[in-house]
């Protein structure tokens, strides 16, 4: 295979599921390209990715605050009411001396999801106003490191599992934060798992090229 220079490699893409090499072809706006080997999604083309990303990451932040400020569930056990919030889950682990689990949980369900959404908000703002190309590169690298460690979705499933365990022992009322967390997880799934990071890299390149032409 002959290449003119290294930048031409941007026309190629390697499937992240089965490592097959593909050449990129232009596709219709809003559609996606699939791998011939395994059917996994290679890349998408969305002209309004900046607006979508910015809107979703800001909405996500609002719902994240709601999910942390209000009780997730309230239970009534032996006539005594108890409630649970996300910070309380972490602090009760510290209070009972489980520092390692506490730290791990704090990072997985609080710090990393918050960081991801803050970084995404900043990143899409930078791309929207076409400034700070160097900073956006650093942010994308940082994002790649922390994305695998954000586990809000798993935490949501854990809440459901633990509530099923409590059925029969206590009366359970869902709190405001539970629904907020649900919305947050849906946004998180779309923004972090559905949109590949390479699409944001491609978007960044398009924006830099456009600026260079001007």
């Amino acid at each position: 295979m002959k290449l003119e220079n290294e930048d031409v490699l941007d026309r190629f893409v390697i499937c992240h599921q089965c490592y097959t090499l593909h050449e990129e072809i232009p596709i219709k706006d809003g559609s996606h390209a699939c791998c011939t080997g395994c059917g996994g999604i290679l890349y998408r083309y969305d002209t309004r990715l900046v607006d979508h990303g910015l809107a979703l990451s800001m909405t996500g932040l609002v719902f994240f605050v709601l999910a942390n400020a209000f009780p997730l569930v309230e239970i009534e056990l032996l006539g005594v009411g108890q409630f649970l919030t996300i910070p309380k889950t972490i602090f009760s682990l510290f209070a009972s001396g489980f520092y390692i689990v506490g730290i791990i949980c704090a990072f997985l369900i609080f710090i990393f999801p918050l960081m991801i959404f803050l970084i995404n908000t900043l990143l899409f703002t930078l791309l929207k106003f076409r400034v700070g190309t160097k900073l956006s590169k650093e942010l994308l690298v940082l994002l790649a490191y922390i994305t695998p460690w954000s586990m809000s979705d798993i935490f949501l499933v854990s809440i459901l599992v633990s509530l099923v365990k409590l059925i029969g022992y206590a009366q359970i009322h869902m709190g405001v934060a539970f629904w907020a967390l649900m919305v947050f997880v849906l946004i998180d799934l779309y923004l972090v798992k559905y949109i590949h990071l390479s699409e944001i890299w491609m978007l960044r390149k398009r924006i830099i090229l456009k600026e260079a032409i001007k």
Partner: peptide, 13 residues
């Protein structure tokens, strides 16, 4: 781990 953390945070009468 999360289930244990949730139950421990919720039930301490």
């Amino acid at each position: 781990v999360f289930v244990v953390a949730i139950l421990a945070g919720l039930i301490h009468l």
